[in-house]
Simulated assay, not measured.
Amino acid sequence: MTELALRALRKTYTGRGRAAVEAVRSIDVELRSGELLGLLGPSGCGKSTTLRMIAGLETVTGGDILIGGSSVVALPARQRSIGVAFENYALYPPLTIAENLGFGLAARGGCGRAEIRRRVAEMAERIGITELLDARPAGLSSGQKQRVALARALIRVPDVLLLDEPLSHLDAAQRDTTRRELKRIQRDSGHTAILVTHDQEEALSLADRIAVMRDGEIQQLGTPEEIYDCPANLFVADFVGEPAINLLPGTADGAGGVRLSDSVRVPVPHRIAAGRAVVLGIRPEDVCLDDTGARARVAAHEPLLESGIATLSLDGVAEPLVVVTGPEVRLDRDDTVRITADPQHIHVFDAQTGDALR
């Protein structure tokens, strides 16, 4: 197992007659041996560019990449002990699965045919694809192709494993199954790994820590629980969570509350200077239907068997409030309900900067 460190890592694209584009801006992250870090963010945020720089597929504009304490920035991709599972699988169509797995070992040399066959068989059994070794990629499902791509990355016994949107082409059922397999394989192998994804569920379920990225910068780095329960700013709060967090603008009253309208006041965890413009973040699952709470009108209710999602309207508040309800709840449009929220589960953000107020 090997540590991985990114030190002030930057990537700037330049072109004739075009303004420079900063794709990655001073990324600083250290991964422990065996840790899986999720790079989570929307398309174009710099996560795949970061992955490609680590793999040696993109030149580095500035900063350093250290594997096991040694810089690899000057090394070509083939000399870095890194395995990559690409988003598009990148399997060789004319070759059997066994030949796909053994191709890299044969190309690099140092392994005889018998050793390659042994390692291919061992890896196939470990990943659960032994029955596929004589098949060709065209006859495989998306989930099977993904397992083959992962096996090919692991067969090199790399110091670092890079996973680029590994589940993006799978349907919902395949994604759930492959995600569980991927987590088991990474834990069993003990590889230090980076997972690039725009899927929050994927990151929250697989990663030991998550770096939420936006415009080439890390907005917050922490455990899944820290990212979800203590978002650093409005972007992180809004990006992570399904259904999405409720974001309600208001004004602090200086007495431990925030006014959302003349008739709606929400208690918050700490006092904020009177008159300060803030945004309250309330997750839908943290709102409870309660006979003693504030009055709200039902705009819509979706019963989803295991739970429900209600969209409510608060008096004088323009933004709707989304609430997760119990499976037994049935609401009709224009029904009146009362709601409460635990102040300790309410997030407060500065309206100008978007930063969380602690």
Rank of each mutant, 00 (worst) to 15 (best):
R117H: 13
A296P: 03
P94I: 09
E125G: 15
G83C: 08
P76S: 06
E306M: 12
L206R: 01
D291C: 10
I282S: 02
D229L: 14
A74V: 14
A273Q: 15
L105H: 04
D134C: 14
P320N: 11
A203R: 00
D171L: 06
V324R: 14
A244Q: 14
H270P: 06
V322F: 03
A232D: 05
A310M: 04
A299Q: 09
H301T: 09
I194K: 03
I185R: 06
S81M: 08
V160R: 03
R214P: 01
P93F: 07
A124H: 07
A23E: 03
F86E: 10
S189H: 11
R18E: 09
D262E: 15
V120E: 00
P327G: 11
E122K: 07
P267V: 10
F349T: 05
D253S: 14
A318K: 08
G281Q: 02
I67F: 03
L289G: 10
K11T: 04
A107H: 07
R119S: 06
G216N: 09
E217V: 14
A351V: 14
R126C: 11
F86S: 07
G326S: 13
L170A: 07
D199G: 09
L289P: 06
H345L: 13
L206G: 02
G293D: 00
V278S: 04
G316D: 07
R295H: 13
F86A: 08
P224G: 11
L101P: 04
I82D: 00
C111N: 12
T130G: 14
A318Y: 02
N88R: 10
A8F: 10
I129V: 11
E242A: 13
L163R: 04
I129L: 02
A203P: 00
A193I: 05
P42C: 08
K183L: 12
F349L: 07
I282F: 04
V196L: 05
P231Y: 02
G110V: 11
R7S: 11
R187M: 07
E306H: 14
H301R: 08
H347Q: 13
S261C: 10
V322L: 11
G316R: 10
A341Q: 04
L167P: 02
P343T: 05
G17A: 03
T197K: 04
A300R: 06
R295M: 12
V322K: 08
A149F: 01
V240F: 01
T59I: 12
H198C: 09
A255H: 15
I185Y: 06
L247T: 12
D64H: 13
P137E: 00
V298W: 04
T14E: 11
L161A: 01
S263W: 10
E125P: 07
M123I: 13
L260V: 12
V148N: 03
V324L: 13
